[in-house]
Amino acid sequence: MTGAGLELRRVRKSFDDRPVLDDISLVVRPGEFVSIVGPSGAGKSTILNLLTGRLTPDGGEMLHDGVPLASGSYRFAFMPQRDALLPWLRIIDNTTLGLEVAGMKRKAARARVAPLFAEFGLDGFERHFPAQLSGGMRQRAALLRTVVQGKAVLLVDEPFGALDALTRTQMQQWLAAMWMRHRWTVLLITHDVREAALLSDRVYVLSARPARIARTIPVWLPHPRPAAGSPEVATVEAEILNTLFNPEF
């Protein structure tokens, strides 16, 4: 996956004349890991739906490498909240599904995916069905299916929210290590303040609806970051929480 820049400029979106997003501007530079946090219902997933083309903004601009996104030209890979693995397909077929839908022959798709199974901790599970995998392994399979498409930007929506606390922490550490290795360009939506602090180069905090950027918090801490016991990470968490509870902070 090659790095590419993503930018939103004063983006607005309403549903039935009720404003959801109001004047949203943000930047994800090539190779950055950027997170968006905000109150429940603030419109975080709406931003991803705009970027994937499922919704159209009412105003503002969305740019990729400085070029406005046109309808049908979206070049971003999207990982939803749930793994969305098809239960009747083996993991090898689930992970190649996006490539095959895009027109790649099955043999070529499998050849592209096969070398990545070991890196994603799935070596030996290619012919298992999703129900035979743990929650963390299913999420790794879903991420593999997403990144193997080679899109410029990775959009991730609450990927670990359904996992237990220990597995979620392990997956956050794993994702951080994978990002450091590949330097994907990532925009993450999350309710988990610690997750944002652990993974991000920058955090955008949304206000309640109609959502604006209440605060932009740069995270200058070096990677990798400890999962627990770091006062520096705790300080970033506190900044995010202060903004969430006091939007005018």
Score class of each variant (00 low, 15 high):
residue 130 P to G: 12
residue 44 K to Y: 09
residue 117 F to M: 08
residue 25 S to Y: 04
residue 67 V to C: 10
residue 80 P to W: 05
residue 68 P to C: 12
residue 181 R to H: 11
residue 126 E to V: 12
residue 197 A to H: 00
residue 111 A to L: 02
residue 110 R to N: 01
residue 219 V to P: 01
residue 67 V to K: 14
residue 226 P to Q: 12
residue 19 P to Q: 05
residue 65 D to V: 02
residue 136 G to H: 09
residue 249 F to N: 15
residue 163 L to P: 09
residue 149 Q to R: 15
residue 209 R to T: 13
residue 179 W to P: 03
residue 124 G to A: 10
residue 160 F to W: 06
residue 60 G to M: 03
residue 184 W to F: 13
residue 74 Y to L: 04
residue 143 L to V: 12
residue 30 P to I: 03
residue 94 N to A: 12
residue 57 P to R: 04
residue 107 K to L: 06
residue 240 I to W: 00
residue 118 A to G: 11
residue 222 P to S: 01
residue 150 G to V: 03
residue 123 D to M: 10
residue 85 L to N: 14
residue 222 P to Y: 01
residue 189 I to A: 05
residue 212 R to F: 03
residue 209 R to V: 12
residue 244 L to T: 11
residue 246 N to V: 08
residue 50 L to M: 09
residue 181 R to Y: 02
residue 151 K to Q: 14
residue 17 D to E: 15
residue 118 A to S: 15
residue 79 M to W: 00
residue 199 L to W: 00
residue 128 H to W: 02
residue 184 W to V: 09
residue 64 H to R: 07
residue 227 A to Q: 13
residue 186 V to C: 11
residue 208 A to K: 10
residue 38 G to R: 10
residue 97 L to W: 08
residue 164 D to W: 12
residue 206 L to Y: 15
residue 246 N to K: 09
residue 177 A to R: 14
residue 156 V to M: 11
residue 134 S to Y: 11
residue 7 E to C: 04
residue 109 A to G: 05
residue 129 F to M: 13
residue 70 A to D: 08
residue 92 I to F: 03
residue 207 S to L: 04
residue 227 A to R: 15
residue 192 D to G: 02
residue 48 L to Q: 13
residue 69 L to V: 15
residue 188 L to W: 04
residue 117 F to V: 08
residue 134 S to R: 14
residue 76 F to C: 07
residue 222 P to G: 02
residue 124 G to E: 08
residue 109 A to T: 07
residue 77 A to N: 07
residue 101 V to Y: 06
residue 190 T to R: 03
residue 3 G to Y: 08
residue 155 L to E: 06
residue 209 R to S: 08
residue 137 M to D: 05
residue 126 E to H: 11
residue 30 P to W: 08
residue 242 N to I: 07
residue 244 L to V: 05
